[in-house]
Each structure stands twice: as structure tokens, then as C-alpha cells.
Design a protein around this nucleic acid. Structure first.
Length: 851
DNA sequence: GAGCACTGC
């Protein structure tokens, strides 16, 4: 009875039980429409010659049913179809942060620069955000220090907002704008420099736009707009906690909710609602840019900060004057808000009850929650200190198709959908498939290629392109090449395409509805990497990838009911990661009481306590919970506290193996340097080629040997890496980090400059050195130790859990009395990765010394 | 016998 049929849910991503208007749903077949409707059997009219293919298509044909193509569109339609203003794809301000859209070099001459600026100006003026310039400027004047801004994809917010604010009277200093990713920071800076007719960063002392990311700082004395990664701004706050060089901080892509952005928001709230005494009276304006759905919680977050500050201020006043009514809220308003104009004064008097405004807006926005994808109606979330602004985006409508029945095998379901789309839909229109990981990507790639062989010759060709982070850069670049003639590209991707990489040419998205997600388990102290259902917001994000260039279709490989049952939001990273690094960051920036730090989402007390305990065990905190000398050193290292602690240990005179440890740590802080090989043939070849690098002491000494051998190779490192089946890109990263860590350690007086060899030392480490290295590792990873049990398994020293040595380890299959490991991950079972053999007595010593 | 995605003076 249940026909396998894609059903379409019109219009809204989050269906409510009673749709506000009639829509095509799963229980009623759509009314036939005159236009593009295709017959059911149409797929069969193109029978594939090969049996497999024809079987597949026949299967799918019976379930393929196209829905009427109503003019109803999903997403933002208010501003009409995009690109009507002659704006090219990837044109100005379209949030193209891959750096592929406009890779112009610098034009050396002033004339060129201003000409470029003139050319770009009309394109800027056509952006959806342009008409809001005055509103945005006005929104931050007077007592209003915080602006919440939602701008959908393609609104131009990342490029235009800093330029709007630049000439405001309060803006005497620099504007910082943060990005979650390096490429985004750099390509946005390049774009804005062009728009302003300025050279980029350090290219000229006069340049007004720069950027700052790890390993790459490009600013000038005259930089007014600086794009930086979130981590970079946090790092700057270590030196300059009041952010004195900035007049404004713009935090972009807040909805991605990285750990760093959460910390940043907490610090910024404290700054902007605090006494600002370190800023010598200079104002600091904060702009938060995020998805519409987050605005309410962000508003509450900052509003709470302002309320608290009012209460504190008022209490202080009460204490001083010894007079009335500490709870009389009205009397306190004028105390803190030194309003600069009549309007804000009026606003002050209007707001009689602290919660009044927020509440009514809360009710209104609840309505929106049911339909988050409709055209945003402005919600009037305003306070005396905040302004909320909505910018429509440029997004084409995307139809959604659901499976009528859940599927167990999303790879097979994706395969069927790919061929269904390919046979049904005319070119152009590439297909983007969201899968969980390298394994499913490669499995589907093989299947697509296999079935494509059986396609009729008059059917367009298929080109399957895998996309995942571990893929070499050159292979990743293939997705940007235009399709060959009469060919449809099928991009098989992990969630890298959700945020990090924008694939051009996509009109069809197939969403497996699954994602591999990392979760830190406090009690066990280990990371889990598990396949889980995506959240609704992630599903919406994936769907949106189909509507970047033309109207599109999103095939969800789950039912509409499944979608309704999904979590609304992806759990923010800060609630599912090890917090020790974050807490160290906070302690180093003067947050004494981490339990009162303003978290947008507060991690459970247990997680905070666990992290504090870990920092204590590393010696990063004093007995009283203050930060120690070691802790300050760790906070300055671009490493996790654990890895940092290994560095500090290795610098001790009795260990004296810092350079070696730096090489190892550099490897541990990049992705796997050893390439994953698929065919048996290559695996064997790699085994053979790497034999000279393998060390029986374990993975850490193997990494050291590898770095030393690579560094020693002066002629052609790339071919050396290829010969040894080692990722050259990862090794370049390792060398960058090695350099940075050496510098850092010199600054921290852990390393004397005279110790850095001018030439790469070829000497293999002695046994004494090896022991020193392993002891240093043990100091940081004391909790990651296990002993061999009589039955041949390993059990952790703390917690007595079973761990298996990961198959990729050189220690795999070996039995030694004890092991130390730098990574502990749960996938199918608990695995130790990065394993070295150690003496049981050493482990006892280090555990004993920690108490 | 196995590898989501980012990021740091």
C-alpha cells in the first residue's frame, strides 16, 4: 500500500500540525498541473542497457513521482528573484568566502584602485543591505552599544557593515570583524579592500583593510577594518583585555556557535555592560551577526547583561548615598545610560519595566519559530542599549521532497535519488549529496560510477566528485572546475559543504539527514565520534545549498515526520567538548569565577568541574583556583592545555628534549600526516616505504623520525612525501606549527635561541633522549595511560576501562606492559590513538606525583 | 582493522 514516493512539503521547513495554508502533503497526491508535470513512467522510457542499472531505475521509477510545480517558493521572496540587478554570481558581498569567486591580484597603482572602487560601487549599491545603511548607522548611535543583525546568505553584511560604520563619529579606532575560518577572513578582507580602493594589509602602509589569522598577519599602521579569526581576537585579548585598539567589534557567523565565538560573546558582554574603565572613555560598539532564529536568545543574553549592570550600578549608588529603593528600577536608568540625544532619553522613559519589551517580543517571535523560513517580519526586539536589524537575503526557492518511508540505507537511497534526478531533470544543475564521512562518500562514489557505466549513451554523463577535509587540496579543487559538456557533476560530500566550501552550480541537494559528530563524555574523559541525525537548522542549511544560483530541489532521505522530530538546533560545541582549554582562556583573561561567566549556553556544572580538575592536575591552576605561572604559559601556547603541558615538561633541564617534543606536538596538532590508503596494493607499498620511519617505541617516536626525515630533505620535500605516502599539506602545516612553537617557546623563555640548530640535525635520538621524551609525554597525558591485562587487553590506569590500540597505530597488535596515548576516541569501541609503550613504573611515578 | 568539520601571539 505505501507507495514509495517523494512527498513535498511546501513552503516551510518546520511544519506545524495545522498548516496555515493548503499545501501539498504526503497523504494527498498533488493535483495535476498543466506545466512541467511528468508522467510516472517517464524514467522507464530511458531504460539502461545494463541489468543493474535498469533494475535500479525500474525500482526507482516506480517510486518516482513528481509534484506539481507550484509557484510557491521557499525562503525569502520579498526582494524578488535574485540577480535581477545584473549582479554576477559570486558578485560583491555574496557571502563567498571560499576565495574562489574573485581571486584578483593587487593592482599596484592608485588609479587602478580607485577605478576598481568605482566599478564595484554600483554592485554594492545593489546589495540587499545597502538600503539599510542609515538604519545600521543610526542603530549604534547614542546609548546603543550592541546591534543584533540578521542577514541571510547573500545580503552583503560581512563586507558592507564595517564600511558603513567606519565614518561614524564614535569610530575613531579600528573595526574588528571576526570569522570562524581563515579563508573567509582573508577573502573578505581582499574584497573589502577592493571596494574601498585600498591595497590589502601589509602591501602598503596606507592600506585601510587588513586581516589577521594564524601564520598570516597582514595589517598596516592605518588599518581601520581588520578581519580576523575568532581565536585570533581571543589571543589579542590576552594582551589587551579592553580591546583598546578597537572602536567596534563585529562578530560574524555567530549561529555556527564555535567554542571561540561563545567565549568571545561572554567577554564582549562583560566588556560592553561593564564599567569600561580600562578604555579611558572610548566607546565600544558590538555588532552580532547571526541567523534569524538565534536573535531572541542573543537579545536575552545581552539584555540580561545590561540589567545586571544596572542593578549593580544602582546598588553601588544606594550604598553611597544610603538612600532609598534598591529595587526601584526606574530611578536607575539615568544613572548608567548617559544618553546623548533626546530620542534615547525618550526611549529611556518609555521603558518602564525591564522585562516588558522582551516579553511581548518573545511572544511574537514564538510565532516565527513555527515558520522560520518565511520572509522575516521585523521583530521589535529593542532595548535602550540594543538595536535589532533584519536584512533580507538573496536565495532562490528550494522545493523539498521527503521519502514516504524511512530508509535504513541512506547510501542506497542516495544512489536512487541521484539517478532519478539525473534522468528527470535537464542540465544544467549539479547534485550535492551530504553524507557522513569518507567511508560513505567513497562507497557511493564507487556505486555511482558503476551504475553510470550502464547508462544509455544519449543520457548526459555523470561525474562523481568526492569532497571531504582529508582529501588532498588538488582533488578538492575539482569541484570548482566547470562540468565538461553534457555532464552532470555529483558532489559527494561530508558536512564540509555545509559551511566551509560553497560548491557552485548546485541545483539539487540530497540530504542523508545524518552527520558524524564529536561529543566529549565527561565521565569517561573521551571523545566519541558518532553518526547522528542532523538538526533542523542543519537540514535547512543543507537545503539552502540548492538555491544559491537558481531555484532548486532538496531531496531529504527521511520522512517529513522524521524532520519534525529532529532537534531544532545543533547542540553548540561548547556543550559537547572538553572545556579545559576554554577555562584556561578565561582564567588567563581575569575571569576568576568561571561559574559566573556569562555563557550563551551554560555547560553543566559537572563539565566545568571536570575541566577545572584537569587544569589543576596539569599544574595550570593554584590550590585556590587562580592561574599559575605554568597556566599562563599554557594559555599563550596555541595548543590544548595537555599538549602545552608536555612542552613545559620537556623544557625542564632534567628532560631537555624540547625541540624533539615540539616536532611531535606539531604532528599531534594537525590532521593525520600518514595518508589513508584504500587499495591493498597501495597499503602494502606504503607499509614498505614507511618502514624506515617506524619506531618500535611507538607512534610518537615514529612521528619524530618522520618530521626529522622530512625536514632534512632539502631537495624536494613534496616528492619525498609522495614517496612515503605522507600528506605533504599536513607536513607543511607541521613545519609552520613547529616554527611557531619554537618562536613561542623562545618568547616564554622555555627555549634558548642558541639551542635552535641552524641545520637540521640528523642524529637519531639516544635511548636517554627517548626516555626523556616519553616522560614528558606522560606528564601531560598521565590520564591517558593503560596497562596490559593478563587476557591481553589494555585497561586504563584511571577508571579501569578497556581500550584497544587503534589499527592505524604502529603499536597495533603489540603487547607491552603499559601504554601512554595522546588521543582517546570512541567510534565502534574505545580506541587509543597516538600510542607509545612505556614502563609501568614510570606511569606509577607520574600518577603518584600528581596526588 | 579504521579516519565529521573548524581553529590559535
Amino acid at each position: 500500500m505505501p507507495e514509495r514516493v517523494y512527498t513535498r512539503f511546501d513552503d516551510d521547513d518546520v511544519p506545524s500540525s495545522k498548516p496555515s495554508k493548503p499545501s501539498v502533503t504526503s497523504d494527498k497526491p498533488p493535483a495535476p498541473s498543466q506545466g512541467k508535470k511528468r508522467k510516472r513512467g517517464e524514467l522507464q522510457s530511458n531504460p539502461a542497457p545494463e541489468k543493474k542499472a535498469s533494475k535500479l531505475l525500474a525500482d526507482h521509477a516506480s517510486c518516482a513521482k513528481t509534484q506539481q510545480n507550484s509557484g510557491n517558493i521557499n525562503g525569502v521572496s520579498r526582494s524578488g528573484p535574485p540577480q535581477q540587478n545584473g549582479i554576477p554570481r559570486n558578485g560583491p558581498g555574496r557571502d563567498d568566502k571560499n576565495g574562489h569567486g574573485h581571486g584578483h591580484g593587487q593592482h599596484g597603482q592608485h588609479g587602478h584602485l580607485s577605478k576598481k572602487r568605482e566599478i564595484l560601487l554600483p554592485l554594492r549599491k545593489a546589495l540587499p543591505i545597502w538600503p539599510h545603511a542609515e538604519e545600521i548607522k543610526a542603530g549604534l548611535r547614542g546609548s546603543k552599544d550592541v546591534m543584533l543583525l540578521t542577514g541571510e546568505t547573500g545580503s552583503g553584511k560581512s563586507t558592507q557593515v564595517p564600511q558603513f560604520l567606519l565614518d561614524e563619529p564614535w569610530c575613531k579606532g579600528c573595526i574588528a570583524i571576526t570569522q570562524p575560518r581563515r579563508v573567509a577572513a582573508i577573502s573578505l578582507a581582499r574584497r573589502v579592500a577592493e571596494e574601498m580602493g585600498s591595497l590589502l594589509g601589509s602591501l602598503s602602509p596606507a592600506s585601510k583593510v587588513g586581516y589577521s589569522v594564524r601564520f598570516d598577519n597582514s595589517t598596516s599602521p592605518n588599518t581601520r577594518i581588520k578581519f580576523l579569526t575568532e581565536g585570533m581576537l581571543l589571543q589579542e585579548m590576552l594582551r589587551d583585555p579592553w580591546l583598546n585598539q578597537y572602536s567596534a567589534v563585529i562578530v560574524d557567523e555567530v549561529h555556527e556557535r564555535s567554542v571561540n565565538v561563545d567565549l568571545l560573546l561572554g567577554f564582549l558582554r562583560n566588556l560592553v555592560t561593564g564599567d569600561k574603565k580600562g578604555r579611558n572613555g572610548k566607546p565600544l560598539k558590538v555588532v552580532i551577526m547571526s541567523a534569524t532564529a538565534d536573535i531572541e536568545s542573543l537579545f536575552k543574553f545581552f539584555d540580561e547583561g545590561f540589567q545586571k549592570s544596572l542593578n549593580t550600578c544602582q546598588k553601588a549608588k544606594g550604598d553611597h548615598t544610603q538612600t532609598n529603593g534598591a529595587n526601584d528600577s526606574d530611578s536607575s536608568w539615568s544613572g548608567i545610560a548617559s544618553s546623548e540625544d533626546e530620542n534615547s532619553k525618550k526611549a529611556l522613559t518609555k521603558k518602564s519595566k525591564p522585562n516588558g519589551v522582551g516579553k511581548s517580543n518573545g511572544e511574537r517571535s514564538l510565532k516565527r519559530k513555527e515558520n522560520p523560513s518565511i520572509s522575516p517580519e521585523p521583530i521589535d526586539l529593542t532595548s535602550d542599549f540594543m538595536y535589532t536589524c533584519y536584512i533580507e537575503g538573496r536565495q532562490y526557492p528550494v522545493k523539498i521532497m521527503y521519502l514516504p518511508e524511512p530508509t535504513q540505507d541512506f547510501v542506497e537511497a542516495a544512489l536512487k535519488s541521484i539517478f532519478q534526478i539525473h534522468y528527470k531533470e535537464p542540465l544544467p544543475g549539479d547534485i550535492l549529496v551530504f553524507l557522513t564521512g569518507q567511508d560513505t562518500v567513497e562507497a557511493l562514489e564507487r556505486l555511482v560510477n558503476e551504475y553510470a557505466l550502464g547508462m544509455d549513451t544519449n543520457v548526459p554523463k555523470l561525474l562523481a566528485l568526492p569532497l571531504f577535509a582529508a582529501l588532498p587540496q588538488s582533488a578538492q579543487q575539482r569541484i570548482f572546475h566547470p562540468s565538461p559538456p553534457k555532464t552532470r557533476k555529483i558532489i559527494l560530500s561530508t558536512n564540509i559543504a555545509e559551511t566551509s566550501v560553497t560548491v557552485p552550480g548546485v541545483r539539487y541537494v540530497i540530504d542523508s539527514g545524518k552527520v558524524k559528530i564529536k561529543q566529549f563524555r565527561n565521565r569517561l574523559g573521551l571523545d566519541s565520534l558518532l553518526v547522528k541525525p542532523v538538526s533542523q537548522s542543519a537540514a535547512i542549511q543543507r537545503k539552502g545549498r540548492a538555491g544559491r544560483e537558481a531555484p532548486g530541489v532538496c531531496y531529504r532521505l527521511y520522512t517529513e515526520k522524521d524532520f519534525v522530530g529532529l532537534e531544532k538546533r545543533t547542540v553548540p560545541e561548547i556543550l559537547r567538548c572538553d572545556l579545559s582549554g576554554s577555562l584556561l582562556t578565561m582564567k588567563a583573561r581575569g575571569v576568576d569565577d568561571i561559574f559566573s561567566f556569562p555563557f550563551l549556553d551554560r555547560p553543566p556544572r559537572e563539565a566545568l568541574e571536570k575541566a577545572l580538575l584537569q587544569l589543576l592536575q596539569l599544574g595550570a591552576l593554584t590550590e585556590t583556583g587562580g592561574i599559575s605561572e605554568v597556566g599562563l604559559q599554557l594559555a599563550k601556547l596555541p595548543l590544548t592545555p595537555t599538549l602545552g603541558r608536555v612542552i613545559v615538561e620537556a623544557a625542564k633541564p632534567e628532560r631537555d628534549c624540547l625541540l624533539e617534543i615540539i616536532d611531535i606536538i606539531a604532528c599531534l596538532s594537525v590532521e593525520n600526516i600518514f595518508l589513508n590508503l584504500i587499495t591493498e596494493e597501495k597499503k602494502e607499498a606504503a607499509e614498505e616505504a614507511r618502514r624506515e620511519l617506524y619506531r618500535r617505541e611507538g607512534d610518537h617516536m615514529t612521528l619524530l623520525t618522520t618530521v626529522q626525515a622530512y625536514a632534512k630533505e632539502n631537495s624536494d620535500r613534496k616528492s619525498w612525501a609522495e614517496r612515503h605516502f605522507i600528506s605533504h599539506r599536513a607536513m607543511q602545516n607541521v613545519m609552520d606549527i613547529r616554527k611557531q612553537l619554537r618562536q613561542q617557546c623562545t618568547h616564554l623563555k622555555l627555549l634558548h635561541p642558541s639551542k635552535i640548530p641552524l641545520k637540521e640535525s640528523p642524529a637519531a635520538p639516544s635511548e636517554a633522549q627517548t626516555n626523556a621524551i616519553l616522560h614528558s609525554l606522560l606528564r601531560g597525558f598521565a590520564a591517558n595511560t593503560a596497562r596490559l591485562m593478563p587476557d591481553g587487553s589494555y585497561r586504563t590506569m584511571l577508571g579501569n576501562q578497556t581500550v584497544a590500540i587503534h589499527p592505524a597505530s604502529v603499536m597495533f597488535g603489540r603487547k607491552v606492559e603499559a601504554i601512554v596515548f595522546s588521543e582517546f576516541v570512541f567510534t565502534n569501541k574505545s580506541y587509543a590513538r597516538g600510542v607509545s609503550g612505556v614502563q609501568l613504573g614510570w606511569v606509577g611515578d607520574v600518577l603518584g606525583s600528581m596526588g
